[in-house]
Write a protein that binds this DNA or RNA. Sequence first.
DNA 1: GCATAACGCAACACGGAGTTGCGATGGAAT
DNA 2: ATTCCATCGCAACTCCGTGTTGCGTTATGC
Lengths: 201, 201
Amino acid sequence: MESRPSGSKSPVGRGKKVRDAVLAATRRELREAGYAALSVENVARRAGVHKTTVYRRWNDRESLIVDAVSEEIGEDIPIPDTGALESDLRSLARAFVRWATSDTGRAVLATLLSDAVRIPEIAEANSRMFQDRLRRARPVVERAAERGEIPPGTVPGEVIRMLVAPLYLRLLVTGEPVDEPVADRAASVAWRAAAAGWLNG
Amino acid sequence: MESRPSGSKSPVGRGKKVRDAVLAATRRELREAGYAALSVENVARRAGVHKTTVYRRWNDRESLIVDAVSEEIGEDIPIPDTGALESDLRSLARAFVRWATSDTGRAVLATLLSDAVRIPEIAEANSRMFQDRLRRARPVVERAAERGEIPPGTVPGEVIRMLVAPLYLRLLVTGEPVDEPVADRAASVAWRAAAAGWLNG
DNA sequence: GCATAACGCAACACGGAGTTGCGATGGAAT
DNA sequence: ATTCCATCGCAACTCCGTGTTGCGTTATGC
């Protein structure tokens, strides 16, 4: 994501702190001002750093934003193991809703969707985040298949897609409220579809 | 959406042509350059009109874009009546996919989602477009209920949501391809969920 | 044909994206 | 502790787009 200090074999003691401060300031600015209104000068001021320093480490505004967001889409949303698929799915859906409606989550979603079409790096970060969560949630479905709760051959990715699709629809398209009851209904439908063997092909 | 010539009782003969030319140019520019890169000066040049003329009719860049997009989200996607719910849903899903993957559709979607959080007018246009399509698709489900294909009490909106949710997920989040087979699978799942009575409350 | 609303035009202020050159500073090795 | 060099601060700059203003010029409706 960065670029400038490419061939680095030298003092990185100061650089680390600056990098962290700038990325943290970028995330704060993203939460408050939003993607479109974020200015490099404000970020630099909030990080206690000069504008040129930012431009020395990142090529442009987009790289900075992509870098800041990419760091934040890691270890969220714990993977449950309650012993039953429906309650696992419910737990996943509720955790996702909590994340998506938090300040951080909304900022990340807004950023990722803002220019996903125009900027390939953002589109890539977007699908990478989704694929990552899909991969981490896979065991939930696999365990259910081993328990015989759902037919063998059920595609884990399709179950998760079924689970989050109505949540994303409300978040991104209709603007309807997204809360626990909505999460629970989504979990219930996804579970029944999986149990009915609709998701194996 | 506009604003300036508010109290108008006078010559609007020229104004109409200018307005149409500017909005058409805005849509072309939106398709080619995208939301973020759209500049008022380019729009004005393409419309054969001066920049100040644009600013006299629209307060700012956002109003212009919202206005241009709002005009284009009308009469799309014909409502089918094949006599069976599943094929009606399939027809709806295919038409939506065709629209969403066209130049126009992608431009509209990208614009509506670009800053939906930050700009209330865009969020409003967004949900208005969805509600409008929901309303127009409602008869498809109602006819199916009258035929006894699905349980009485099935909520039409929920069927349509079930139909389009996976399509939006692929379009906006995962970036996976969206084509006819995907549309047909979505229709099949939505139909079975409705027939099973999962969507009535 | 005549009044007037709407347009064209040039010039402007303002702000943010990036860039450049140079001087100051801090961390790491000797 | 001193030296070295990467990194940072700073000021000044170009470029581009937004949005505004004043004035002269057209086209439209009557």
